[in-house]
Structures are given as C-alpha cells and as structure tokens.
C-alpha cells in the first residue's frame, strides 16, 4: 500500500509508468481514500478501492477474465482476459476500465481518469463533471 497526498488540484502522481508491468497493480492510500491502479495492455486504470456492493476490498481481488455463454446457449466462452476485477471479499465482477458491474447494470465502481504526464502516472481524483444529456 503506497501512501500519497494529492496536490491542491485533486491530482495524485501514483508512480512512474515503467513501475508497473501489464497485469500488475498498485494499491494506494490518498488521504482516507483507497485506490487501485491497474496496468492492462499498456493502459492504466484507477478504481476506487471500496466495493460498491458491500464495502469490500475491491482492488485486492484477482484481475482475470470471465465466461459468457457461447452461441449454442450451453457453451462456455472465456473472454476479457485481464480486464475483469473480482472483489476480494464476495467476488463480484467489475470491468477494470469502466468500473461497471458485470451482473448488475445499476452498479458501478467509481473509476478515476488516469493520464501519463512525462512518464508519470497521474490520477485525477476530482469529482466527475456533471454532464447533461
């Protein structure tokens, strides 16, 4: 667990880009907030560490794939290898990029925007801007 402070703009520099290999993660504590930073296929994703289901340790579970049904209904097709995060407590599955629950369309783990700034991985903790549709 890496303990960091955010800057006055609500951004936190988590690590250097080359500190994490694909499939690896960094657990962060920023103030009272827990965050998991994941590197998947060269891209970085940050999720809030507290599972929206029951407050579990979301970012400490395995980063894995999942199974969908094949076209013949009773088949099994493995997909999304390395892009599905299972909460460490109850095993609920979330898309590591969007935070979307795979089973419950109404449930989403908070994801934070991440950008690479001169080799540094910077997470933006500011509240998401409200958009109108």
């Amino acid at each position: 667990m890496r303990v960091l402070d955010s800057d006055t703009d609500g951004r936190v520099t988590a690590c250097r880009e080359d500190e994490l290999g694909d499939g690896e993660r960094l657990l962060l504590k920023v103030g009272r907030r827990r965050i998991g930073l994941f590197r998947v296929d060269g891209r970085f994703f940050a999720l809030h560490g507290v599972c929206p289901h029951a407050g579990g340790a979301l970012c400490e579970g395995p980063l894995t794939g999942t199974t969908r049904t094949a076209d013949d209904f009773f088949g099994f097709e493995y997909e999304r290898e390395g892009r599905v995060l299972r909460c460490a407590w109850h095993g609920w599955e979330f898309d590591v990029e969007s935070g979307q629950s795979l089973a419950d369309p109404g449930l989403r783990a908070r994801s934070y925007p991440v950008r690479i700034d001169d080799g540094a991985v910077v997470i933006d903790l500011r509240p998401p801007r409200r958009t109108t549709t």
Partner: peptide
Amino acid sequence: PEGYMRYD
C-alpha cells in the same frame, strides 16, 4: 469456482 475464502 474461486475457492471459498476472501482473497485478502
């Protein structure tokens, strides 16, 4: 299918 322990 995942083992019955909390991963953490």
